[in-house]
């Protein structure tokens, strides 16, 4: 799972008011190179929750993202490269996503988060 996806997910447990962002527990990270598309990154920048992305990328061991970001930075290739890397190239392979409100763990195996809820969570 890429951080792009992590940034869009929130805990869906019944009664949870703020299920975003899911905290990341890391056991294994893998990196996969993908081609960069500046236009896509610009679009995504509007949607991404920056704070969640920094925290997630730090948890994954990547610390190159600036603390604050605004759209003017999208003109910088260096910034785009880092944003691209954080968003699309680091994958959580093994670990867990943790609901910020209830502490419920959603295990991640072979890169696939298990988001199935128990019956009393629906």
């Amino acid at each position: 799972m890429r951080l792009l996806t992590h940034n869009m997910l929130s805990s869906n447990i019944k009664g949870v008011v703020n299920g975003f962002p899911l905290r990341i527990e890391v056991e294994k990270v893998v990196e996969k190179t993908v081609e960069m598309n500046g236009e896509f990154l610009k679009k995504m920048f509007e949607k991404v929750d920056w704070k969640a992305l920094i925290d997630a990328s730090r948890a994954m061991g990547y610390t190159e993202l600036p603390e604050e970001a605004d759209s003017s930075m999208l003109d910088s290739d260096e910034f785009l490269n880092r944003f691209h890397h954080a968003l699309l190239e680091i994958h959580l392979e093994e670990g867990a996503l943790v609901c910020p409100e209830t502490g419920r763990r959603f295990p991640v195996n072979k890169g696939i988060p298990n988001m199935l809820l128990h019956e009393d969570e629906v």
Binding site: L9, S10, S11, G19, P113, L116
Partner: peptide
């Protein structure tokens, strides 16, 4: 996974609703 698809995969039940942020 074996077929190395490019998308991210989630194990989940659509009938339980999607846990995805609004409007993204």
């Amino acid at each position: 996974l074996e077929r190395e698809v490019e998308g991210d995969l989630l194990l989940g039940d659509m009938g339980q609703g999607l846990g995805v942020r609004p409007g993204v």
